[in-house]
Amino acid sequence: MEFTGESLDEVLIDLYQALLGSKDRNVGTRGSNMEMLGTALCITKPRSRLSRSENRGKLFSALGELLWYLAGSDKLEFIEPYIRAYRKEAIEGVVPGAYGPRLFSMRNNLDQIANVTKLLRWKPSSRRAVIQLFNAEDIALDYPETDDPSFVYPETPCTISLQFHLREGRLHLSANLRSNDAFRGLPHDVFCFTMLQEMVARRLGADLGNYLHYVGSMHLYDDTAEEARHYVEEGHQKVVEMPPMPEGDPFALVDTLLAVEKRIRNGERLVASDLLSDPYWADIVRLIQVHWERDEHRLNELKGEFAHPMYRMFIDGRREMRKRAPTPR
């Protein structure tokens, strides 16, 4: 089944309606779910990567995941403050299926992002600009002979590959996934992969093309079905795009962003515009600050500092989420 829209919200509404009406069911590692096999999504304005819905606006956790990728890290201590669920996948503090090492230091320290860029500069029409995330070794496991339903196999990447297509000055991205949790995982995947798409496009001096997302098993777990229904009932949201990424090579700023994130994580009070002069990247720093900030007065200050007004709604949404969330143990 195919779903096309300008924004993440447009695609999600139609997808959730289809999944909620699906009679096909499966029982996976994380429980019973409604499933559709062979699902294709197309977002024609990939900067509309953020849901404007109250219960789908996962900006801060998605940004944390992107930074984790860019750090080339598989360490739980980095990602857990953004996404606690990774705790269940970690083995001795390491998340085996983490994408960062696979993107930037695959076998023999291959930087796949750099290699794709070199290839497309040399031959813009290439069909070989493919990044591999799922390895043959990921299923070469010694599976135990057991019917114990509590046994959990090591997690492997849901994403098989990312393929970049440079056509007529526009960079399109095709993400191929073996499996996708439509409620928890898909919004994060769209954010992280379209941000990588735009970063590579800027490095190449290209415009942003379509984002294409192909999934073998698209599913909606029973424990999130009611939330998906509420989301559908909210109706279509106005399409609002993140501002365009500035020209130049964004990957040259990654070390700076990661160093700033570490300082914010450690409790330093920083002025974003003093660290990164471009308003786009200063706003990214402010979003990191909002995630870690607990003082209401400082949150109000940060809200007023954003160069792009679209981010302000996410601060209000984060406050509401904190009010509803149980006290961490």
Rank of each mutant, 00 (worst) to 15 (best):
V285N: 01
T117S: 06
A129P: 01
R202M: 07
R286C: 05
E155R: 11
A114Q: 06
L173K: 01
E77Q: 15
D14Y: 12
A325E: 13
G248W: 10
E241G: 10
I43E: 04
A140C: 14
A252F: 12
Q237A: 12
V11S: 07
I288S: 00
A175T: 03
A182C: 15
E35F: 08
Y69W: 04
R202N: 06
D74G: 01
D189G: 03
D148P: 04
A225M: 05
S125V: 09
P246R: 00
V130A: 04
H219R: 06
T4P: 11
D74C: 00
L204G: 02
N135R: 13
G304Y: 05
F164G: 00
E233D: 14
W281E: 05
T44E: 10
P149Q: 05
W122R: 15
H188C: 03
L110H: 09
F191V: 06
A272W: 01
V130D: 01
T224I: 07
L19Q: 02
L177E: 09
P309Y: 03
L196C: 07
D111P: 01
E2Y: 14
R178K: 09
A282K: 08
L141W: 11
L120K: 00
Y16F: 11
V94H: 07
L8K: 02
L196T: 03
T159S: 08
L212I: 09
E320N: 06
V215T: 12
P243T: 04
A228L: 11
A71D: 11
H236D: 12
L253F: 06
D111C: 06
R178Q: 05
L171R: 00
Y69A: 00
D9P: 04
L302N: 03
W281R: 03
K303D: 06
D111S: 07
A85W: 10
G31S: 04
V271K: 15
E80Y: 07
G248K: 13
H230F: 14
F164L: 03
L257M: 08
T327H: 14
P244S: 03
S161R: 01
R121A: 03
M313L: 13
L41W: 05
S53L: 11
I113R: 00
S174Y: 08
D222K: 14
R203K: 15
M199D: 01
A129D: 00
L67W: 01
F193Q: 01
V240Y: 08
L220E: 00
R49D: 05
C42D: 05
L19H: 03
I13M: 08
L59C: 06
P279E: 11
I315R: 08
A325K: 05
I131R: 01
G100Q: 00
R294N: 14
K262C: 12
R52F: 07
P149E: 07
S174L: 15
D24T: 10
L37R: 09
L196P: 02
P149Y: 06
I139A: 11
H172L: 02
T117E: 06
N135Q: 13
T224H: 12
H219M: 09
G100S: 02
K23N: 15
R324Y: 12
I91H: 07
A225Y: 04
D223W: 09
S22L: 05
S73Q: 08
H172Y: 04
M34W: 10
L63Q: 09
M106Q: 14
E2V: 14
D138G: 04
I79C: 02
A140V: 15
P124M: 03
R107W: 08
I113E: 01
N180F: 04
N266K: 13
N135P: 02
L12M: 10
D148V: 07
Y221W: 08
N176P: 00
